[in-house]
Amino acid sequence: MKKALFAVAAAAAVLSAGAPRDAAACGGALWEERVFVPKPSPPKLVAQAEKDLEGGNPRKALANASSAYGDLAKAEPGADNLKNRALRISALAVVRSKGELKVAGQKEATPQERLAWAAKKLEALSAKAPDNPTVEGDLGEGLAAAGRDLDAYGHLAKLADKDLLGTAEGYSALSRLQFAAGLTSKSAKSLARCEAMASDRAVCGLAKAPEKKVAEKAKAEDAKKGTAKPGTKFDPAVFAGDLKI
């Protein structure tokens, strides 16, 4: 008897869970017309992912790209341009999240390892499209995030010299690298370009972080040498040995 009661209660629970919130047109029947919402096509998902990335939402961008292609963690650039675009988005999403985001199917890794993965994918994409400034700019940004400053600088500075660098993030990375190399006026110019291009100036705030770091380091060094003077400008040559460039 108890079993029967449980069965009825369970059945009622199942049926009530499936009941429509609004009574169906057919007299309060216990079923509803479920609207089938088709999943957006991969081209639309990828296009949306690109917009998400441009809009400063790498998490959503990665989700949409992964929804279009589930195997991006192991994917290599190939003949499918749409998939290449999805791979680019996933790599840049990882870069712009500072390695916090994990691509579906990726094994456990540190943020630095994820950034290295992203840089590798961007390198592979760049090798497929050697004359594409957009891809090269992405690569520069990815290499900078992965700590490969010298390689990053080569790509980003070349593009910026020709006014072909197309992202605020790219200029932000370049500004940081230029500052670290002591190219302060170029760094300021890159920062200005970043700020002009960015929809969110926080993107360019990244460029200021090393400035502070280096300035603090300079101050500390000066204090150690006993040469610190209020208002003394930082001489990057002093720290050339510490820089990766």
Partner: peptide, 22 residues
């Protein structure tokens, strides 16, 4: 078709990439 694409310029008569804003 995209912001980055606009920034990426054109292939000029010499076959080199150049900015459409130069």
């Amino acid at each position: 078709a995209s912001y980055e694409g606009v920034a990426a310029g054109i292939v000029d008569d010499k076959g080199e990439r150049s900015s459409i804003f130069s």
